[in-house]
Every structure is written in structure tokens, then in C-alpha cells.
Design a protein around this nucleic acid. Structure first.
Length: 486
RNA sequence: GGCCCGUUGGUCAAUCGGCUAAGACGUCGCCCUUUCACGGCGGAGAGACGAGUUCAACUCUCGUACGGGUCACCA
């Protein structure tokens, strides 16, 4: 039997990394076994509908590279894949259970349910099963009177319901704690749980993969499968992803990942310069570990390596520092072609020509952790302010304003006469240092500072000068000499 | 509150009864060096607590504590 998993998001207009990771694992579990990954949109909540929200789902999956085999946009043999388009499907199943005495119509008003709850000591005690055994004639009278009703399932009053989860192991629940769950709401729509079971079954889903918040409602699902006489799917519950934040007292707290933990939306992270494949790589590691200690993977490699036995039970904290490192590793592993492709918009913006691409790749690739940092790193090319002359002082390089003045005075004519290439420029500085018996850095530091005007640059003096070009470099050095002399 | 689940360094994690408890991120130090990075080397840093089972327990069992989840005509 081939594995079929499904990602069943509700269109809320936002896809945070927790949802994405669920989708990822569903995808990986299916693909590792050559199975099928299905996308189903769960939009039975008319009140929460958000315009354009399904596009967010499509875009996220597409950007992340999680390609579904069946779904609303591409079809498949188990469609439709949008719950609002399958509405007619659910009620007959519920009616069937009513016929068989496994479910019943409940005419209780919301008000009654609320007062029930208010009267209970803990405020959370559920339904009292008031309508569970209504006499036939009363039911008929209520129906004739047009009193709205919901359909509830008759849960067993005693015994236990148990199941085996591939991650959490054997789990058992006392049935008496289970409410007579609502299958069909008063508006005729199915509840999420009910639609979920019907859809998973009719779509032949073999492995139900979802967050651990469903661990305790799974018995209810199983009781439904049982009522219909269907086989239950294999369950794989996933640990939650948590976030770190600071509370009003300045204390660090860890709680379920949400917006207050910064950018947790996949698209937000992409906008901040994180590569989709790096995000995928990182979140794959939140709750799963490979057998060896390798950490950098492409999606294809994840498919190959992913194993359910590697999924952990305890929640994981989302760590931006590690994401950043993973991102940097992906950048470093890029071919020059890919690297340049990602840099191109920023290079164009700074007016940098192709002749510099090789050099820029060399100096930028090892030090960029997100592409969005490039403008800042290249800012010195287009901006040259009246920087603080104290920049010429650098203890480790043994550079002072005095030494800088002397070096620049000598370097200016030498550079004027130079062929403008990297090796040549480096050679000029080095041989000058040697002749004067100075450390290389005593010469290169002031040249770099004078040329760039900032303390930190990608690349050293020669590289900075190459990027700047002869004319601009000499102009800047001249200006610096004038300022040092003043 | 009831029920369910979890708990190895700051974070992610390995360990399936033999532990002198891996590795990674972060952090600190040193080296390399043309600044900053990259890279190399090294340091600090962990089994929530208490009982029990066992020759042996991070690993199994039970309690306690703490954390999380769940108890909707939400999904």
C-alpha cells in the first residue's frame, strides 16, 4: 500500500513555520516512501474566511518546494479538495449514524449549553447528553416545529479508547471523559473533526500527521472511524514549536510560537533574506534528527534521509541564530552562478558591473549570512562621508594617524603609477612595507580606511580599491591626506 | 480543575541498561590574516527531583515538581 499523507490547512492568510513544518513532515513521510502528498483546504468556518488566504498557502508551498500531487489547483481522483465544495458529502454520513443509532439530533440551544458550563464548578464540564435518548415523538415534534438541531455522536459511557502513535507510543483515554461530539452544526456545516475524518477516509489518507495538540482528541476520531466500521489511519503526532520572548518584567519566557516572537511567517522570513531551502532545512531539524550528525540538507536529501523514528516528542524552541547559520551554510554551498543570481538585484542597485562579479563572489560569499545584508556591506562604494580620523588608528595593525599620513603620502604616487589589478596593488603595498620594514597591515590599514571610509569592509585594501576603481580610489586617498594634514 | 503528553548544557539534539554523556548553534580564548568575516584549534557548559528494579540506570517502574496541550455549534 502506498502512503498517502495530507496537508489540511485552514485559510487564515498566514502560514507560520509551525504549520509549514507539519506540511514538510507530511511531505517527507510520503515522499520518502514514494507516496502521495495531498493538499486539502479546510474552510468549513464561514466566519473566519479571509480573502486571498488560499493563495498564501499555494505560494508558501510552492516557494518552499513542497509540491503536492493532488489538490484544489491541480485536481486528482479524490476531489474536490476544498471542504466548502464537498459540503453535500458530510451530512448523509451523519444521517447514517443517526439511522444506526450511533448518533442523535440534539435540540439544545447554545444558551442552555452555556448555562450548563456556568453551573459546573470548573467551568469546562461538557454536555449533559440531554437529547441522547429523546423519545421518537418528541424528536418528530421538534423537527415539525422547525427547531434547529445539531447531530451528535453517542460516545461510549465507559471503557477506554486506545491507539498507538508512531511518535508518542501507546495512548489510552477513559471514554467517560469524551463528550458526545457534534458532527453537524446547526447551520448544516460539518464540524472540523467530522469533516476531517470523512475526508481522510474518502481520500484514502493512510498517515495522519499533525501537531501534538490533537493527541487528546484522537480518541474521538477513532470512535468515529469505529462507528463507520472503517480502519483507522496511522497517527503521527508532532511536537510543537515554541518561541522565546521577553515578558513585561524583562524575563525570558518560552511559549507556543506566535507573532510576538518576531517573524514566524514563512514569507516574512523569506523577505528578511532567509532562503526557502535554508528555512526548510532548519525547521526539519526542529523535532527531527538524522542518524548521523549531519545538519545541512537539501530537500531531496531530506526526502532520502527522513525517518519517522527520528522524530522527537518534546517541543523545540525556534532559534534565529541557528537559522542564520544554516542560511549561511546554504549560501556558502552555492555555485557562483546561483550566488550571483541572488546578489544581482543588489548589485544592479549599487551600479556594479559584471567585471566585478568574480571578485565579489570571492569576498562576499563567505561573509554574507543573508542576501539582504549586501547593500549594507557595499554601501562604502557609493557613500563616502567625512569619517572620523580616529579610524586610522588601529592597535592590532599598528596603525596611527601619523603612520597613516606617511603611508598615504607615499602610496598616492605609487598607486597613480600602478596598473589597476589586484595582484599588482597588493604587491605595491607589500613591497613598500618590506622596504620600510613595516608590517603589511601598517600600510594596508590606512589605504583601506582612506578608500572605504569605514572600519569594516568585505575584502581588504586591494579588493576595495579594485571595486572602487582607480579614479575614485585616488580621489578618496587624496582627500584623506588633506584631512590628515589639516 | 479533569484528562493527555513532555523534561539531557542558553538553544537544537545523540544515547535504546555499561557514560570518562556525542555533535551542532551560540558564547569565550588562541591561531591564521589585509579590517570584518571565513577557516583551524581549544575552553566553559547538561541527565528536574525523590524512591524503586538491577551487578549496573540518562536509559526501565512509580511518585513529586515544572512545562505544554486539550476539554467549543474554532480549526
Amino acid at each position: 500500500m502506498t502512503i498517502r499523507t495530507r496537508f489540511a490547512p485552514s485559510p487564515t492568510g498566514f502560514m507560520h513555520v509551525g504549520n509549514l513544518r507539519t506540511a514538510l513532515y507530511e511531505y517527507l513521510i510520503a515522499k520518502h516512501e514514494g507516496g502521495t502528498f495531498v493538499l486539502r483546504i479546510e474552510d468549513t468556518d464561514q466566519e473566519r474566511y479571509v480573502e486571498g488566504a488560499t493563495d498564501v498557502i499555494y505560494n508558501t508551498l510552492k516557494t518552499a518546494g513542497l509540491v503536492h500531487d493532488e489538490g484544489p489547483d491541480i485536481g486528482g481522483s479524490f476531489g474536490p479538495y476544498v471542504q466548502s465544495e464537498r459540503l453535500g458529502l458530510y451530512k448523509p454520513y451523519a444521517e447514517q449514524l443517526v439511522e444506526e443509532g450511533k448518533a442523535y439530533r440534539c435540540f439544545c440551544t447554545k444558551e442552555r449549553l452555556e448555562s450548563l458550563r456556568a453551573e459546573s464548578e470548573d467551568g469546562v464540564t461538557g454536555y449533559d447528553r440531554h437529547c441522547r435518548d429523546l423519545p421518537e415523538d418528541e424528536i418528530k415534534a421538534n423537527l415539525d416545529a422547525g427547531i434547529p438541531y445539531v447531530i451528535r455522536q453517542k460516545m461510549p459511557l465507559d471503557g477506554v479508547t486506545e491507539y498507538d502513535d508512531l511518535v508518542y507510543g501507546h495512548i489510552s483515554f477513559p471514554n467517560k471523559d469524551l463528550d458526545d461530539q457534534i458532527l453537524i452544526k446547526a447551520d448544516g456545516f460539518p464540524t472540523y473533526n467530522f469533516a476531517n475524518v470523512i475526508d481522510d477516509h474518502t481520500m484514502n489518507i493512510t498517515h495522519v500527521v499533525r501537531g501534538s495538540e490533537y493527541l487528546s482528541s484522537t480518541p474521538k476520531y477513532n470512535l468515529l472511524y469505529e462507528a463507520f466500521g472503517w480502519d483507522t489511519p496511522t497517527y503521527i503526532h508532532l511536537p510543537l514549536i515554541m518561541g522565546k520572548s521577553v515578558d513585561e518584567d524583562g524575563k525570558e519566557v518560552i511559549s507556543k510560537l506566535s507573532k510576538r516572537h518576531g517573524s514566524t511567517g514563512f514569507m516574512d522570513l523569506v523577505e528578511e533574506g532567509f532562503l526557502p531551502e535554508a528555512i526548510i532545512n532548519y525547521i526539519a531539524l526542529l523535532g527531527w534528527a538524522p542518524k548521523d550528525d549531519r545538519e545541512i540538507f537539501s530537500l531531496e536529501e531530506l526526502i532520502e534521509r527522513f525517518e519517522i523514528s527520528g522524530i522527537s516528542k518534546s517541543p523545540a524552541v525556534f532559534d534565529y541564530d541557528k537559522l542564520e547559520w544554516v542560511n549561511a551554510e546554504h549560501i556558502k554551498a552555492m555555485t557562483q552562478e546561483d550566488f550571483i543570481k541572488n546578489c544581482k538585484p543588489y548589485f544592479d542597485q549599487a551600479g556594479i558591473g559584471q567585471e566585478h562579479y568574480d571578485l565579489l563572489t570571492e569576498i562576499l560569499q563567505p561573509r554574507v549570512t543573508r542576501f539582504t545584508q549586501i547593500p549594507e556591506k557595499l554601501q562604502f562604494l557609493t557613500q563616502y562621508e567625512q569619517f572620523d580620523l580616529a579610524l586610522f588608528e588601529h592597535k592590532k595593525s599598528k596603525s596611527t594617524q601619523e603612520s597613516s599620513k606617511a603611508v598615504l603620502n607615499d602610496m598616492l604616487p605609487a598607486l597613480e603609477a600602478a596598473d589597476w589589478n589586484r595582484e599588482g596593488l597588493t604587491e605595491i603595498m607589500k613591497s613598500y612595507a618590506e622596504a620600510k620594514e613595516l608590517k603589511n597591515s601598517v600600510v594596508m590599514w590606512p589605504v583601506r580606511i582612506a578608500a572605504a571610509g569605514v572600519a569594516v569592509t568585505p575584502g581588504g585594501a586591494a579588493e576595495v580599491m579594485m571595486l572602487l576603481g582607480k579614479e575614485e580610489t585616488l580621489r578618496r586617498i587624496g582627500e584623506s591626506i588633506a584631512r590628515l594634514n589639516a
